[in-house]
Design a binder for these strands. Structure first.
Lengths: 233, 233
DNA sequence: ATCAAATAAATTGCATGCAATCGTCTATTG
DNA sequence: CAATAGACGATTGCATGCAATTTATTTGAT
């Protein structure tokens, strides 16, 4: 039960968290050797994790040239947010029709956690802001919708890491709270309006900004070697 | 340029086609050894391909228990079609707003190919029917939307293989033609209506039906060993 | 005869080794 | 001095080998 996750799963989860918390910035090269060494496993497991991250869109693998944290372009950013609006509207529609019994409570408790992480200036706050939207998707009960939203939220985080201002509050927690209120009232129109505004606010933080290669991956990753599931997914 | 696809790419493409053309039925076990042997490569490459197919939702990998062609449940089938309606509406919306210059021509020529394959009773017709919808997504120009639609169309094909009647006409080609007409007129309402009807017609072919394990994979797969790209994606 | 436990067979998970490919640096030539 | 060709270094792609886990089979007891 404790060792239910294989080695490559652990590496996948760790890398994912590191990327989503912006410890690994877009463009950072991820050689199989380095990753294997830092996690104390072979390249095979590292490669496995990188492949999965690639299909999530979090890393880009060029044949014979290695993997790197994906660097979404502004064009891709627009695509992501356009589709994200579409999917999040679907989520809201469904939740206004049928919200699980303790769904509102779960949302509120999540926002509480966001507030705690924000006050503590923890890098977790970046990830938690995205996971709020994943939690919304989970309340619909559709595995597929959860998958798609997860993917697109991950890509959004990457876009913010690439173009957004350094850290900042990411998603406005206030808007999360307003959204919960509208959902409680089953007010789909208001909820969609808040969501659109929310996403636009996120999207508008696009400024051209070049980041260099993070030099020492192993040092960064040493903090992400997994010992237990911290609710990465 | 000709050998631009790695071994695992070739296996991935071959297996994908075999599944999408229903040569490999849901539930069929896919041992790494057998696949490696039939394609004349090692298990490593086969494993690689299986991992990618798993993230596409086409195969299910249970830890230490091997891979098998995914067997979607009726519940998952509903999820798939619900989300598919959402995404295909988005596609139509965008295409009605802006259709590429030779988009209509591309659609018509695709339908022509569908008709040819259908008359020839080729198994390609099954795959082509799905790829019509992928082509629609491609005309939007959004890579992400293409990815999502591809995934969901693949899963739909799998659902039809699991629950639908043996082969049959799959998607009504007539409806594809009607849809093209509506798109040409930029009549979003009609297009959406046709699409909804079209998808419902597909969805309603759900009957409980048990399939057994296809016994000899290698024989089936021998026809899918890749020599050239036949437009699998 | 039925069920439980132990053993055997099959398959995956992972590590290591080698060859192929790509990028870079240097040297040679126009 | 610029440009191109060749060689070097680094990294991936793939194959093979071994240990671990699971499943099937056999053995034993009640």
């Amino acid at each position: 039960m404790s060792t239910n996750l294989s080695r490559s799963d652990a590496i996948y989860a760790s890398l994912r968290r590191a990327i989503l918390e912006q410890a690994l910035k877009p463009g950072t090269k991820l050689p199989e050797d380095s990753i294997g060494d830092t996690f104390g496993v072979s390249r095979t497991s590292a490669r496995n994790a990188l492949l999965r991250l690639a299909s999530d869109g979090l890393v880009e693998i060029k044949p014979n040239r290695g993997a790197a944290v994906a660097m979404p372009t502004l064009e891709e950013a627009e695509e992501v947010f356009a589709l994200r609006r579409c999917l999040e509207r679907e989520v809201i529609d469904r939740l206004c029709k049928r919200m699980p019994r303790d769904g509102i409570d779960a949302l509120i408790s999540h926002v509480r956690e966001e507030e705690r992480a924000l006050q503590a200036s923890s890098p977790r706050s970046i990830r938690l802001a995205g996971e709020f939207h994943i939690l919304l998707a989970e309340l619909t009960g559709s595995k597929l919708l959860i998958d798609f939203i997860s993917q697109i939220v991950s890509r959004s985080s990457l876009i913010l890491a690439r173009f957004g201002r350094p850290h900042s509050a990411e998603c406005g927690i206030d808007e999360h709270i307003q959204l919960i209120e509208a959902l409680k009232d089953q007010d789909a129109a208001t909820a969609v309006r808040i969501m659109d505004h929310h996403l636009h606010a996120v999207e508008d933080r696009a400024k051209t900004d070049d980041k260099d290669d993070g030099p020492d991956i192993s040092e960064i990753l040493s903090r992400y070697i997994v010992t237990e599931d911290h609710g990465s997914r």
